[in-house]
Simulated scan of single mutants.
Amino acid sequence: MTSDQRPALAAGDYTLGTDLPVTRLGFGSMQLTGPGVWGDPKDPDEAVRVLRRAVELGVNFIDTADSYGPAVAEPLIRRALHPYPDGLVIATKAGLTRTGPDQWVPVGRPEYLRQQVELSLRFLGVDRIDLLQLHRIDPKVPLADQVGALKELREEGKIRHIGLSEVSIADVEEAAKVAPIVSVQNLFNLANRTAEPLLDYAAERGIGFIPWYPLATGRLAQGDGPLATLAEQRGVSPSQLALAWLLKRSPAMLPIPGTSSVAHLDENVRAATIELSDAEFDTLSRAV
């Protein structure tokens, strides 16, 4: 298969830890569930097609979580891709419980985290999870205890690497006293860059930065906004430009745009082939 048929490869690789290379443009599985990230998708067969197509396009980094569904996205990934091709990295998360659609409650008790990791191993059909991220820090449980539980699972060979989600620099520093942290996953996109200090901190320390909600562009993509204007000039979509901007922003950036549509997936992944000039990057950066 040619590089044109596997456009994700144009984004290049990033190595998590010292031994886990991933394509810098990955795929997020949250949208493969029902409304409110609750229940089964409207079209499970299309969800399977999306996952298989992502791998065909060169994506080897898939992000998921036990709470997507809950327990819907992980079994879908297994149904679509198991036995997994060599080099495919599936990152999952634990630490958020679900009480209904759009409801998320952090639970970081060590026994709960262990239970959820064991379930993820079963749902994904693997003996070891390549990257397990603490989905949210539970304020009722010492962070050292939450990361400590994941460290124990890593020592048992059930987790390869540990990451964190929606954290501060101070959180990362505290967690790193317990176990090495190879990734952080925070809200970040062209229109919302509040996590920029964390991004730079992570990049300087060899920690991958996974922006969730990477395609939120708001007014920038509307009418005569700068994103829409440049997209028209380049003959691409505003969402493709937004992803291209993320990829250029930092070599540690690992966007994981998600979708439930094969057509939209193809469009997102081809953003990896778009090279922004420094002037174009600066224009978009200044737009917010």
Rank of each mutant, 00 (worst) to 15 (best):
47 A>P: 11
128 R>V: 15
153 L>K: 03
97 T>K: 00
103 Q>G: 05
126 V>D: 04
48 V>Q: 07
139 P>A: 02
133 Q>K: 15
83 P>H: 07
51 L>R: 12
157 G>T: 12
114 R>Q: 03
110 P>A: 14
50 V>E: 03
111 E>Y: 06
34 G>L: 12
76 L>Y: 11
66 D>V: 05
127 D>E: 13
29 S>N: 06
39 G>S: 07
108 G>S: 08
140 K>L: 10
85 P>Q: 12
111 E>G: 05
132 L>Q: 06
103 Q>E: 09
86 D>M: 09
46 E>A: 10
144 A>E: 15
53 R>E: 14
97 T>M: 02
127 D>W: 09
151 K>A: 10
109 R>I: 00
153 L>H: 08
32 L>A: 13
62 I>C: 08
123 F>L: 14
34 G>N: 11
101 P>E: 06
107 V>Y: 00
43 D>M: 08
62 I>T: 05
126 V>I: 06
42 K>I: 08
162 I>C: 13
146 Q>S: 00
142 P>A: 12
93 K>H: 10
115 Q>V: 05
109 R>N: 01
148 G>I: 06
38 W>P: 07
109 R>W: 07
71 A>Y: 11
114 R>T: 00
121 L>A: 05
48 V>R: 15
159 I>M: 10
59 V>D: 08
134 L>Y: 12
38 W>T: 04
82 H>I: 06
141 V>L: 06
154 R>T: 14
141 V>W: 08
110 P>M: 11
139 P>Q: 01
156 E>Q: 14
115 Q>K: 10
145 D>A: 14
49 R>H: 12
110 P>W: 10
135 H>K: 04
50 V>L: 04
86 D>R: 14
157 G>V: 12
160 R>C: 08
38 W>G: 07
111 E>A: 11
31 Q>C: 07
130 D>W: 14
68 Y>F: 11
35 P>A: 15
88 L>E: 11
140 K>Y: 03
110 P>K: 03
106 P>Q: 03
94 A>Q: 08
98 R>G: 03
120 S>N: 02
79 R>H: 05
156 E>H: 09
123 F>A: 06
137 I>S: 00
112 Y>S: 05
88 L>P: 03
147 V>R: 02
83 P>N: 05
146 Q>T: 01
61 F>L: 02
104 W>Y: 15
85 P>D: 04
140 K>N: 13
67 S>T: 09
148 G>D: 02
79 R>F: 12
34 G>F: 10
27 F>H: 14
154 R>G: 15
72 V>L: 04
152 E>C: 08
158 K>T: 12
54 A>P: 10
112 Y>R: 11
46 E>Q: 09
138 D>I: 05
87 G>K: 01
45 D>Y: 12
146 Q>G: 03
158 K>S: 14
50 V>S: 03
70 P>V: 02
50 V>D: 04
100 G>N: 06
100 G>V: 07
129 I>D: 06
100 G>I: 00
158 K>V: 10
138 D>K: 11
144 A>P: 01
81 L>F: 04
83 P>E: 04
122 R>V: 07
82 H>N: 03
132 L>Y: 15
123 F>H: 15
127 D>H: 14
